[in-house]
C-alpha cells in the first residue's frame, strides 16, 4: 500500500496512525504540499482530481478520502476496528466519520489560516470548530455515563482515529481544548494505545516510557 503523505497533514496522519496501531506497513510517498503544491500537479491530479491528500494506492484500488482509507485498511487488517453488523454501531460509525469532515473544515480550516496564512474567515472557522468540540464533548460525556471511553461500541474504532487528529490540533487554529474534560480523557485513551505514533503537535504520553530517574529513589 502506497500512501501519498505529508508529515504536517492531520488527514494523512490519521492513515499513518491507524496503520501503525494495526501493525500494517505503508510505503510512504512524501508530497511537497507546502510550499511546492505538488498535490495540485499533473501526477497527483491524475490520481486524485480533487487535488487533496492523503491518497492511498493499493494495486488497482485508489482512495482519496481519509475516512474511506481508514475503512479500507481496517477491513483488510483489523475488522475489530470497524463497526459490527449491529445497526446502532453502523450508524454511529458513519455518523462520526461524517462528523470528522466538519472537524476538518472548521478546526483544520482555522489551523491553515493561522499556520500557513491561507485565506479564510478565521473567526467563523473557530466558531464552527467550537460548536463541533462542544458536540463531541457532550457525546463523549454521555459515553462515559454508560461506562464507555470511545465513540462506537465498546472498543476503539476508526471513528476515534478519524476524529482525533483535528481535535488534538485545535490549538494550532487558536481554539482552546481546556474546557473539554471528556475530550481530554478520550484523547488520553487514544494516546495510550500500543504502537501509538506522533505527529508534530501531537505527542505521546511521556509517562508511559520508563522513568530515566528510576533507581535513584
Amino acid at each position: 500500500m502506497i500512501l501519498y503523505d505529508y508529515i504536517l497533514s492531520p488527514s494523512c496522519y490519521k492513515v499513518r496512525l491507524l496503520a501503525s496501531l494495526l501493525g500494517v506497513k505503508l510505503e510512504l510517498r512524501a508530497v511537497d504540499f507546502h510550499p511546492g503544491r505538488e498535490h495540485k500537479g499533473d501526477e497527483l491530479l491524475a490520481l486524485n482530481p480533487a487535488g487533496s491528500i492523503p491518497i492511498l494506492v493499493d494495486g488497482e484500488d485508489v482512495l482519496t478520502e481519509s475516512a474511506a482509507i481508514l475503512s479500507y485498511i481496517a477491513a483488510k487488517h483489523g475488522q475489530n476496528w470497524l463497526a459490527t453488523s449491529d445497526a446502532g454501531e453502523v450508524g454511529a460509525q458513519q455518523q462520526w466519520l461524517s462528523f470528522s469532515h466538519r472537524l476538518t473544515s472548521a478546526l483544520g480550516g482555522a489551523r491553515l489560516v493561522e499556520m500557513l496564512h491561507f485565506p479564510g474567515d478565521l473567526a467563523a472557522l473557530q466558531e464552527a470548530g467550537i460548536a463541533a468540540l462542544r458536540e463531541l464533548e457532550a457525546a463523549l460525556f454521555a459515553r462515559r455515563l454508560t461506562g464507555q471511553t470511545f465513540l462506537v461500541g465498546d472498543r476503539i474504532t476508526i471513528a476515534d482515529i478519524a476524529c482525533f487528529p483535528y481535535v488534538a490540533l485545535a490549538p494550532d487554529g487558536s481554539v482552546s481544548l481546556d474546557p473539554y474534560a471528556s475530550i481530554r480523557i478520550w484523547m488520553r485513551a487514544i494516546r495510550a494505545q500500543p504502537r501509538f505514533i506522533e505527529m508534530p503537535g501531537i505527542h505521546r504520553l511521556h509517562e508511559l516510557a520508563p522513568d530515566p530517574l528510576a533507581g535513584d529513589a
Binding site: 481546556d178 474534560a181 471528556s182 481530554r184 480523557i185 488520553r188 509517562e207
Partner: peptide
C-alpha cells in the same frame, strides 16, 4: 476548578 472524576490518577488538567 474541576469535577473530581475528570482528573484521573496520574494526570494533570488546566483550570
Amino acid at each position: 476548578a474541576a469535577v473530581s472524576t475528570d482528573i484521573l490518577d496520574g494526570t494533570v488538567v488546566p483550570a
